[in-house]
Amino acid sequence: MPLSQCELHAIASLEQLFDQLSRQLPLPPHFGRNLDALYDCLANEVPGPLRLVWHDAAAAERALGADVYATVLDILQTVADERDDVALDIRR
């Protein structure tokens, strides 16, 4: 299966994050647009291999707030750690 790449740019809200992920990944119709659903879908439903690239992550951290950013980053890193076919590239 070919490598899919998801590029996140100019994330200033969770809604923007969910919008970009929904446009670029085959998220299921029942994706709940919340952080629990994000983990569930990325961990179990999105086919790999997948490379997630988050551009301007430092700006996203400022816009989202440190706590929300850390939670999102933890979800993405956990998925990458759990799945051999998912890579995470954070570009500050």
Rank of each mutant, 00 (worst) to 15 (best):
M1T: 11
L3D: 10
C6I: 07
E7C: 14
E7Q: 11
E7N: 13
L8G: 12
H9D: 08
A10V: 08
A10I: 05
I11P: 00
A12P: 08
S13Q: 04
S13W: 07
S13L: 06
S13K: 05
E15R: 11
E15T: 04
Q16L: 11
Q16M: 08
Q16W: 09
L17V: 03
L17P: 05
F18I: 00
Q20A: 00
L21Q: 10
L21T: 00
S22K: 04
R23Y: 00
R23E: 01
R23M: 01
Q24K: 05
L25P: 13
L25A: 09
L25F: 14
P26D: 02
L27M: 04
L27E: 03
P28D: 09
P28A: 02
P29Y: 12
P29I: 07
P29T: 02
H30T: 06
H30P: 02
F31V: 00
F31S: 01
G32T: 01
G32F: 00
R33V: 05
R33T: 11
R33A: 07
R33H: 09
L35E: 02
L35C: 02
L35K: 00
D36Y: 03
L38A: 06
L38I: 07
Y39E: 08
Y39I: 08
Y39V: 01
C41R: 03
L42K: 06
L42F: 03
L42S: 10
N44Q: 11
N44I: 10
E45F: 01
E45A: 05
V46Q: 13
V46A: 12
V46R: 07
P47S: 09
G48M: 15
L50W: 06
L50Q: 07
R51L: 15
L52F: 03
L52A: 11
V53K: 12
W54G: 07
D56E: 02
A57E: 08
A57S: 12
A57D: 04
A59L: 07
A59M: 12
A59P: 12
A59N: 08
A60F: 03
E61P: 00
R62S: 06
R62A: 14
A63S: 15
L64Q: 04
L64C: 01
L64P: 07
L64N: 09
G65R: 02
A66M: 02
D67N: 06
Y69G: 00
A70I: 07
A70D: 06
A70T: 06
V72W: 10
L73T: 14
L73V: 12
L73G: 07
D74N: 08
D74L: 09
I75V: 07
I75S: 02
L76C: 12
Q77H: 14
Q77C: 08
Q77G: 14
Q77D: 05
T78F: 01
V79T: 00
D81R: 15
D81N: 12
E82D: 13
R83E: 10
R83D: 05
D84A: 09
D85C: 12
V86C: 09
A87K: 15
A87E: 11
L88K: 01
D89G: 09
D89C: 14
D89S: 13
D89Q: 11
I90E: 10
I90Y: 14
I90P: 13
R91A: 15
R91Q: 08
R91I: 15
R92S: 14
